[in-house]
């Protein structure tokens, strides 16, 4: 039925009592299914896990008695937990600024129109849209000490055979993870910043050009303030992703050597799915949620203030 037909049809009927009730409650009726699913799969498990976190369930025992904050107290004594948080912080603190910087430089390179720009952009997006597991696998192939090209390239420049066990050698596991991470996500920053830069009012830049402002002054006075909100959003999105980094590390090092590259997500996974420390894992989950909530709130506050 086309639009005009249905308008004609609509004119010829009066709403039934049921139809009227349906329409009056429509705002709630169409919200309900989505909210229900979110509650069912989002909130309900969280509440359940909150309860579990106050119990003492492990692989061997199913002790559902209430133990208060015991699990949470345990968190503070767990050095491996804090180490994993440290690993997460290191990766975030290095990868995020690098991605931002590289993304910004790439955006600067492509901001002016040039023939073929669309094709370059389309190709550069590729790393960002592939599965992180594929990205990790790819770099595992790249890094391979015997059959991978990285060693060959380094040997070429060094003039002698370079043999680095990227995913095993303690000195190189972090660089390996960060290279892979930065490779996959710099294009993400690039895309957002390119869009933000293209949205900067062209006539402001022209006015500054006529005013005779230097590149740095234009950057500081016009461009950066204009794209600051986008930088903030990009950093927030990427920051949250980095804090929960899991896939790439799983594919590259699986947290090793030992637990040297174990991030908080990996540690939670280990506790829950290989040690089966049910109650304790639940407590860790809440620690993670609490941390992220605090960080997000702080960042959002800063963004509000900056407006």
């Amino acid at each position: 039925m086309t639009l005009s037909e249905s308008i004609n049809a609509a004119e010829q009927r009066r709403p039934s009592r049921f139809g009227r009730m349906f329409e009056d409650r429509l705002p709630y009726l169409i919200v309900a299914p989505a909210i229900l699913i979110l509650l069912l799969v989002g909130l309900f498990p969280l509440i359940y896990s909150l309860i579990v976190s106050f119990q003492r369930i492990t692989m061997t025992e199913n002790d559902t008695s209430f133990v208060g904050l015991l699990n949470y107290a345990e968190l503070f004594r767990d050095t491996r937990l804090w180490a994993s948080l440290g690993h997460t912080a290191i990766i975030t603190a290095i990868a995020l600024p690098l991605e931002l910087l590289i993304g910004f430089l790439m955006a600067q390179l492509f901001i002016d129109r040039m023939p073929g720009r669309q094709i370059f952009v389309a190709l550069l997006v590729l790393p960002t849209v592939i599965s992180p597991i594929v990205a990790g696998a790819t770099w595992r192939l790249m890094f391979d000490v015997r059959f991978g090209p990285i060693g060959q390239i380094l040997s070429f420049f060094a003039g002698e055979p370079v043999r680095i066990l990227w995913t095993v050698n303690p000195s190189y596991v972090y660089p390996a993870i960060i290279i892979c991470e930065v490779w996959q996500w710099s294009p993400f920053m690039f895309l957002l910043l390119l869009a933000a830069l293209s949205n900067v009012d062209q006539s402001q830049l022209e006015a500054a050009e006529i005013d005779g402002a230097s590149y740095l002054r234009v950057l500081r006075a016009i461009v950066l303030p204009a794209i600051a909100p986008v930088i903030a959003v990009a950093c927030l999105i990427r920051g949250l992703d980095l804090v929960r980094i899991f896939d790439i590390i799983w594919a590259l090092t699986e947290g090793g050597p030992g637990s040297m590259t174990e991030t908080i997500s990996l540690y939670t996974y280990v506790q829950g799915f290989s040690q089966f420390e049910t109650s304790y894992t639940a407590a860790i989950s809440f620690l993670v949620i609490a941390l992220l909530t605090v960080i997000t709130t702080l960042v959002l506050k800063r963004m509000e203030l900056a407006r």
Binding site: L46, L240, F246, S285, V288, I289
Partner: peptide, 11 residues
Amino acid sequence: MIPPIAVVFPV
């Protein structure tokens, strides 16, 4: 914003 790892375990 909730980290998947925190959801997946109770789920």
